[in-house]
């Protein structure tokens, strides 16, 4: 058996890998707005519940890899990840005590912030945004949060202890 600490790192790496694969899973062109921000959700979970395990540098590298993966300008996702991670670090003690749906509401705000920076970079790259569509991922991410929370909780409890 691996040591618990090492085990935790394996779980974290695995969860991010799954999130990355899901974030490029092919969807019909018109449905793409509804794709939740999987990587961001997983990152938020780890920061909320294990704030000392995920470093900002690691998040930056993760974000850069996601940029590479999705073919968007370098820095777009890492910018969002780092800003959201900072807000999470400031707020995790309160948010841990929220009910799950209240947490979802907070997730909506956090993903919304990340979407703002995402679309700000996209706008600079010459793809201006029209309409309220950019909040769809925030909504779907918020709805997915209970599932994500349950899955990661389950995995941590099963393999970490």
């Amino acid at each position: 058996m691996l040591s618990p600490q090492l085990n935790l790192y394996v779980i974290i790496a695995f969860s991010f890998l799954v999130a990355l694969v899901l974030s490029v899973y092919p969807l019909p062109m018109d449905m793409r707005w509804w794709r939740p921000e999987f990587v961001l959700l997983v990152a938020i979970y780890w920061i909320f519940f294990m704030p000392l395990t995920v470093s900002f540098i690691l998040l930056c590298i993760l974000g850069l890899f996601q940029d590479l993966l999705e073919g968007v300008p370098f820095g777009q996702h890492s910018l969002g990840l780092v800003i959201v991670a900072y807000i999470c670090i400031l707020s995790y003690q309160r948010v841990r005590n929220f009910s799950i749906w209240r947490q979802s509401g907070w997730i909506f705000v956090l993903v919304g912030v990340a979407q703002l920076t995402d679309n700000w970079v996209q706008g600079m790259a010459g793809r201006p945004l029209s309409g309220i569509q950019f909040l769809y991922p925030a909504l779907s991410s918020a709805l997915l949060w209970p599932v994500c929370h349950w899955w990661l909780n389950n995995m941590t409890h099963r393999y970490h202890h």
């Binding site: 793409r32 073919g71 793809r127």
Partner: peptide
């Protein structure tokens, strides 16, 4: 083999 996940770009 894949579609760009970014809804603003058609790649």
């Amino acid at each position: 083999i894949g579609v760009s996940p970014n809804p603003l770009s058609h790649k």
